[in-house]
Design a protein around this nucleic acid. Structure first.
Lengths: 192, 192
DNA sequence: TAATTTACTTGATCTATATCAATTCCTTTC
DNA sequence: GAAAGGAATTGATATAGATCAAGTAAATTA
């Protein structure tokens, strides 16, 4: 499944065969069964991870035991806990597989090596980060501005594929509402 | 007030006198009176902006006319609308001054020039972006997980200075609650 | 394919927070 | 430093969404 990652890179930047080979030599393939953890809170996250197949969620668990979904990531996206990566502190998040999933992993030191040696790769990474930041900011705005119904409609419009493959209760959590509320919203919305 | 920016850079990276001079030659100083706009929604944002003095807020306005504060930025922070900057589309946000404010502005093409010519500067910018992303993600988590009271306590702990200089109604908006609710929370919390 | 578990739906009730309204307290301005 | 305008407080009431509970459907597992 490395080919998926290769194609992703090729769609973004031009590499010499040597460079492409160098990147591949540092990549580690990882497979996750559905429900398997990629990261558990308390552990330190040390990778840069790209999903080639499947779907993963990042979430926190509060004192009452409620799970709060911070993000979903699917094939052709990156995942991980940047906070733990940067700080070296134990993560407050969990990441687990919603479907059987395959990833391409780089240890962070290796990833930084690649960034330093291949400027185009570094630029690509930075562009992704900018996009991630914009996405996060838009999510904040949606959380502040929208009603529960608007949040759901906005979500489906923005990520049409997600609504199909991700359990409703997780989408509800991502949107900051209970599964019951989302269920009611869906029947109401469908009726219209 | 350029010195504040100079010191900021010096605290992060080492520059040759030539490089420092080059950066300075591309900088534009801008002053804002309290309540003055730096960006109005509908306009395209084209700068990279660093605050040397004062305080600014980024917010959106919904159809009902309610303002939703996306972020506060004070001296030694950056501000702007990255979404509009990257896409070239009109901004959906407003940025205005909460206090009299001074900024160091770079047009984005100039800023990119600096990044390309001074790798250390580029790295600094990327590090800032990573931090911004982590901050945004933490804010999402707080918005999903906390009660109104917890949100406020968390905010004061995280940004002790802000609670002093920013009007309560704006903090309430930032936290996703009404000014009345925040007022009540404050009197309750004080009583404890 | 039956059994078991897990996810979703629907209904009744509750509650945190919003809304509306009046009053007081600060700023700003002239 | 008086007047005016905006911000914060406080009270009464309303409501979106949460919680609790039961039933139904769908997915796993045996």
């Amino acid at each position: 499944m490395y080919e998926v990652f290769q194609q992703y890179i090729d769609s973004k930047i031009m590499l010499t065969p040597d460079e492409a080979h160098y990147i591949r030599s540092l990549a580690v393939i990882k497979k996750l069964r559905k429900k398997q953890y990629l990261l558990q809170d308390g552990d330190v996250w040390k990778y840069d991870a790209f999903i080639t197949r499947g779907c993963v969620r990042t979430y926190s668990v509060d004192e009452k035991g409620n799970e709060h979904v911070i993000s979903f990531s699917i094939e052709n996206w990156w995942t991980g806990d940047r906070e733990s990566l940067l700080s070296g502190e134990p993560s407050r998040f969990n990441i687990d597989a919603i479907e059987d999933t395959e990833l391409v992993l780089f240890t962070h030191p290796n990833f930084e090596l690649i960034c330093r040696q291949i400027p185009a790769f570094n630029n690509m990474v930075n562009a992704i980060l900018q996009k991630s930041f914009v996405t996060a900011q838009n999510r904040i705005q949606a959380a502040l501005s929208y009603t529960a119904e608007e949040k759901y409609i906005n979500f489906v419009k923005k990520y049409p594929g997600f609504a199909m493959r991700i359990p409703q209760s997780m989408i509800a959590s991502y949107l900051g509402m209970t599964p019951e509320t989302l269920s009611r919203i869906r029947t109401q919305t469908a009726r219209k």
